[in-house]
Computed example of a mutant assay.
Amino acid sequence: MKPAIALFPVLAVALLLAGAPAQASSKMDNRIEASAKKSYVFNTYLKGDDIKIQSRDGVVTLTGSVLEESHKSLAQETVAELPGVKKVDNKLEVKGDSPAVNSDLWLATKVKTTLLFHRNVNALKTEVSVKDAVVTLRGDAASEAQKELTTEYAKDVTGVKDVMNEMTVSGASTRKDESVGGKIDDASITAQVKIVLLYHRSTSAVRTKVKTKNGVVTLSGEAGNAAEKALVTKLAGDVHGVKNVTNRMTVTGSK
């Protein structure tokens, strides 16, 4: 009987060890779900959407509905960058009918989204309308430089033929203080940079890897020429929350 009695402590330890990975996994999943909900992207761009986040052993499933097609990609890119995430299963649906690709409404949405991510323009005070792929901008700009930059960004969105900028230069500072909302998390920064580079025609085909640590963005991959590499740095550097950009892209040749 003594040998049998000695087995009890051994079994108890074995059971505890077996339960440890499950507990650790549960904590990680809870942390992933909480981090996504607290992220800058979810609290700023996706706050009007109905998104449910469920993580199981690092595999995250997104369900619910979003207002725009671009929100699906933005949600997925943000969650994918969170520590511990192995995979994202995106089951989000768009409310209502999505605009046809390359339609005027589709282009207007892309231009608005692109301007939202850039801190040196004021998307909230910029009205965007599109007719036959020609973008018209109205609203207020803090300076002539900001007005010109808004034109530059809108014109470089894939599908836009031309831009008519009718914005008024008010001279008042319209830049938001990012410190009001606290530090912008790295996952949100990476997601914004990825979408920006995808939407701009000059960088949409660039093979770029984006990583962010403490607000510093590191870019790697390939650029066709030095000008393309410099543009990627410029676009990434103007995204909300970015403190600095380290561009390690390789220039493969001229275009």
Rank of each mutant, 00 (worst) to 15 (best):
V128R: 04
D132R: 08
L137I: 10
R138P: 08
G139K: 07
A142Y: 00
S143T: 15
S143M: 03
A145V: 14
Q146W: 00
Q146L: 05
Q146T: 06
E148F: 03
L149P: 01
L149G: 00
E152G: 09
K155I: 07
K155S: 15
K155A: 15
V157M: 06
T158V: 10
G159N: 12
K161C: 01
K161P: 10
D162N: 08
V163T: 09
M164V: 14
N165Q: 07
N165H: 05
M167N: 11
M167P: 04
S170N: 14
S170H: 03
G171V: 01
G171S: 03
G171C: 02
S173L: 13
T174F: 08
T174A: 10
R175F: 09
R175N: 07
R175L: 10
K176N: 11
D177G: 14
D177I: 15
E178T: 11
V180P: 06
A187W: 03
A187S: 15
S188Y: 04
Q192G: 13
Q192M: 15
V193I: 14
K194S: 09
V196T: 15
L197F: 13
H200N: 02
H200K: 00
S202L: 13
S202Y: 05
T203F: 04
S204C: 12
V206R: 00
R207H: 07
K209E: 15
K209Q: 14
N214A: 15
N214D: 15
G215A: 07
V216S: 01
V216E: 08
V217T: 14
T218S: 12
L219T: 04
L219S: 06
S220I: 07
G221M: 05
G221R: 03
G221K: 02
G221F: 01
E222Q: 15
A223P: 10
A223G: 08
N225P: 13
N225S: 11
A226G: 00
L231T: 07
L231Q: 10
K234I: 01
K234Q: 11
G237F: 00
H240S: 09
V242R: 10
K243I: 11
N244C: 01
N244V: 02
N244S: 11
T246L: 14
T246Y: 06
